[in-house]
């Protein structure tokens, strides 16, 4: 009896060999393209030189980490990174779900398709171009926004010297860029919901709002949870492209908009040190790892089917 309850490793492999075989291509890929290069993680603890290569360069302890922690900014950029990501994740999730539900209920097929296509457009506009847009729209001299303010008799604003604007602008831009993308996921989740549920609810006399709150949202829960978990697992990884292109090296805004990735970029501009770059990456990885392990364990306790792993 015992052996039946706890079959061994090889027994399990033999029993489900077809399934494991089906997993093999992806597994091979990840071994070759992720786990083999992952050995390079040791660079964070090494004084890397080309003669000895990654694996045989001399160790240098935690030397590569020092710059980050003695900069006096480690705490600030870590908090900034987390705060921005939390805000981004929250509004992204809420708006994506909202838009997906609305679009799915729209009657006009054309309108549905057209509006959905429009929302996807920002995805194609790179942050470089977005930053050119911001510059032109908010330009102090000729920008649309300031022309408008002047026409109303107000003082023009200079967003590049006043950090407070960016607390609004960054989330709005993030939302603008990703809402179309995010709603696609929820839209396809809604498409997967069995129509019979709604029909039954209609017969029971439920109204639109009841159907959304009692059927759609609960059925979307697994999707929401997995996407949130995936987001939480990246909570320490900043949107470098976005921050770098929009804020750049603007010293007037840096304290409020500095994330780990931009601080590292700025610090290492003149040094070109793989070890130091890896060290910061390692710090982010470890924190992400700890956070996701904790969160995932909690989720698994509550509902094992929703957990990541």
């Amino acid at each position: 009896m015992k052996s039946l309850k706890k079959p061994g490793f090889f027994h399990e492999l033999a029993k489900n060999k077809v399934l494991y075989l089906m997993f093999l291509p992806v597994a091979v890929y990840y071994i070759l393209f992720a786990y083999v290069p992952m050995l390079g993680i040791v660079v964070a603890f090494k004084d890397f030189n080309y003669r000895d290569g990654i694996l045989f360069s001399p160790w240098n302890g935690v030397d590569n980490f020092r710059y980050f922690f003695v900069s006096g900014k480690a705490l600030q950029v870590t908090t900034n990174t987390i705060m921005y990501n939390v805000v981004f994740l929250a509004i992204y999730t809420i708006f994506s779900i909202m838009v997906a539900i609305m679009i799915s209920e729209l009657a006009s097929k054309i309108f549905k398709k057209v509006s959905q296509s429009f929302m996807f457009l920002p995805y194609f506009i790179s942050w470089v171009v977005v930053s050119a847009f911001m510059y032109n729209f908010f330009n102090y001299d000729y920008g649309l926004v300031n022309n408008f303010l002047r026409a109303l008799g107000n003082e023009p604003i200079n967003i590049y010297s006043e950090p407070s604007y960016w607390y609004i602008l960054l989330p709005v831009l993030y939302l603008w860029k990703w809402v179309g993308f995010g709603s696609v996921l929820y839209l396809s989740a809604i498409s997967g919901i069995d129509q019979e549920c709604y029909e039954a609810a209609t017969i029971d006399g439920a109204n639109m709002f009841q159907k959304i709150f009692k059927i759609t949202l609960p059925l979307l829960k697994p999707t929401v949870v997995i996407l949130l978990l995936l987001g939480v697992g990246r909570i320490l990884r900043g949107e470098f492209d976005m921050f770098y292109n929009l804020i750049g090296n603007n010293g007037l805004l840096i304290d409020n908009t500095d994330i780990i990735d931009t601080l590292v970029f700025r610090s290492l501009l003149g040094t070109q040190d793989f070890g130091m770059a890896s060290a910061a990456g390692f710090y982010q990885s470890v924190l992400c790892f700890l956070i996701i392990m904790i969160v995932n364990t909690i989720v698994r306790k509550v509902d094992s089917e929703s957990a990541l792993f």
């Binding site: 079959p7 399990e12 489900n16 997993f23 992806v26 597994a27 990840y30 992720a34 786990y35 083999v36 290069p37 992952m38 050995l39 390079g40 993680i41 660079v43 964070a44 890397f48 290569g53 990654i54 697992g233 990246r234 793989f274 770059a277 890896s278 990456g281 390692f282 990885s285 992400c288 790892f289 996701i292 957990a307 990541l308 792993f309």
Partner: peptide
């Protein structure tokens, strides 16, 4: 039996990486 193990195997790669140098050289 190992479905969560497999998920972790895949997910883990998003957490840790060996850095650009290692990836490029590999």
């Amino acid at each position: 039996k190992y479905r969560n193990g497999l998920a972790f195997f895949i997910y883990f790669t998003t957490l840790f990486n060996g850095g650009l140098a290692s990836y490029y050289i590999t």
